[in-house]
């Protein structure tokens, strides 16, 4: 990998997104709007359901949004011929993937700072652990979404197909991550499956942060999420071929 090239890719992706005002607005505001909607839903109910569901959603939004954005963007790059052109230049696969991960990581950081700030101030989300760590976990989740999006874009021929990978890759993870049924209360087979899905660890990390001031488990979960992201990026690199049929 060459830092000059990695940063060039990241800067280019950010310029493209800055150009697209509608996408930029949606990336930054959508998580805030959805958190507000969630808070409002539980506003008049007894108990503090928002405090128990909110953290899981803070983990989920960056993951889902980055998965979608990345799978479509990279597919566009594959089909427009720009990827082929870049790979015929002195560009490493790591530069390409790293550049994308970096650019979307930056966007995820801004997105998460906004959503987390809104949640802990106006919406009154009670967080026992350090608030900054909430943002770190959200960025890791976004990078995970980016990595998986890059990987699946190799298996889609059209943007239409790429979008269909969301129900396949993302929704099972949402169902099994502990949001609907606590993971230890799932049937043993499903619990075992949920143990190998990265979003489970992302959700666990957020929940720990909100309910406890002890951060040891958060770092463990975070390490698992980052491990999955690195594995997906490596698999993604394997799908970038300089020569095609």
């Amino acid at each position: 990998m060459t830092p000059r090239i990695t940063f060039a890719v990241a800067a280019r992706v950010l310029t493209q997104i800055r150009r697209d005002h509608r996408t930029l607005a949606m990336l930054l505001l959508l998580p805030c709007l959805l958190m507000s909607l969630l808070w409002w839903m539980f506003d008049e109910l007894p108990g503090n359901t928002f405090d128990s569901i909110g953290p899981a959603l803070l983990a989920m939004f960056p993951f889902i949004i980055m998965f979608l954005v990345t799978s479509v963007t990279t597919l566009r790059e594959r089909s427009s011929g720009t990827l082929e052109r870049l790979l015929s230049m002195p560009m490493g696969k790591g530069d390409f993937l790293g550049g994308y991960a970096l650019a979307f990581g930056v966007i995820a950081a801004v997105q998460s700072v906004l959503a987390v700030t809104l949640s802990v101030t106006l919406l009154g989300l009670e967080v026992q652990g350090p608030v900054w760590l909430l943002t770190v976990v959200a960025v890791a989740d976004a990078v995970l979404g980016t990595a998986l999006g890059l990987f699946v874009s190799a298996f889609a021929q059209t943007e239409f197909q790429a979008v269909q990978f969301m129900p396949l890759i993302v929704i099972p993870q949402i169902l099994l991550c502990g949001l609907f049924v606590a993971r230890d209360a799932l049937p043993p087979v499903l619990e075992a499956i949920s143990n190998v899905l990265p979003l489970s660890y992302a959700t666990d990390a957020m929940t720990h942060l909100v309910t406890s001031a002890d951060t040891a488990e958060v770092w463990q979960d975070l390490a698992v999420v980052v491990g999955f992201a690195v594995a997906a990026l490596s698999l993604g690199a394997a799908t970038l071929r300089r020569r095609t049929a």
Partner: peptide, 12 residues
């Protein structure tokens, strides 16, 4: 190498 389709970024 210049491909038949312009391989550049339309949004830049």
């Amino acid at each position: 190498y210049v491909t038949q389709e312009a391989s550049v970024y339309d949004d830049l």
